[in-house]
């Protein structure tokens, strides 16, 4: 994966498959640390699955017995000196929480990349689910919550309408508020 936002898309797709109705993504950057949390309310995983999920030969897919999603996230984190943690129990709504820490001053740290495209892709493919994104940095903070968007859009305008998706992309791409730095 060339960008962390591709890993985020990939891991969030697992949450979609786990039947989640709400997927919360948070990215927190402070100093040289970048922390990623992806939390869902899906069906969770058994204890055995949690223990083996970082093994590329563990997968839920049926086309072949290889699953690279979590192993690639683990690699991306560990090659910067960071690590990942996975918390999950099996059962309806138990959910899964994936935590990953990266050190951004490490030469092998992949860039965050195009977070806007990742969110647009998730919304486009799953207009019936709810997503939240909190991107918190020392420069500022960005927030996206489809529950809030839905309240405004009502039932007439679906979340995957092209103009809504464009609004989401622009919201994420625009620079942080510069009220503190404006001089």
């Amino acid at each position: 994966m060339k960008e962390l936002s591709l890993n985020i898309l990939d891991i969030a797709e697992n949450s979609v498959k786990a039947g989640a109705s709400l997927i919360e993504i948070s990215i927190t950057e402070k100093g040289n640390s970048r922390e990623l949390v992806i939390q869902d309310d899906g069906c969770g995983m058994s204890k055995e699955m949690v223990e083996t999920v970082t093994d590329p030969f563990t997968t839920s897919r049926t086309t072949r017995p290889v699953g690279m999603g979590i192993p690639l996230l683990k690699l991306a984190a560990e090659q910067t000196g960071g690590h990942i943690e996975i918390f999950s129990t099996q059962g309806a709504d138990h959910g899964t929480r994936v935590y990953a820490q990266f050190f951004t001053d490490h030469i092998d740290c992949v860039p965050l990349g195009d977070l806007a495209s990742t969110m647009v892709t998730l919304l486009q493919g799953n207009p019936g689910l709810d997503f939240s994104l909190v991107y918190d940095t020392e420069e500022g903070r960005k927030n996206l919550d489809t529950r809030e968007m839905r309240e405004i859009l009502g039932e007439d305008v679906p979340l995957d309408s092209p103009s809504v998706l464009m609004w989401v992309a622009e919201l994420i791409r625009e620079p942080f508020d510069s009220e503190d730095t404006a001089e």
Partner: peptide, 17 residues
């Protein structure tokens, strides 16, 4: 970007959907 813009998108699209 503001949620007010989203409101405008909604008003614009409501009729065309």
């Amino acid at each position: 970007k503001s949620l007010a813009e989203l409101q405008a998108i909604r008003d614009r699209m409501k009729n065309s959907v």
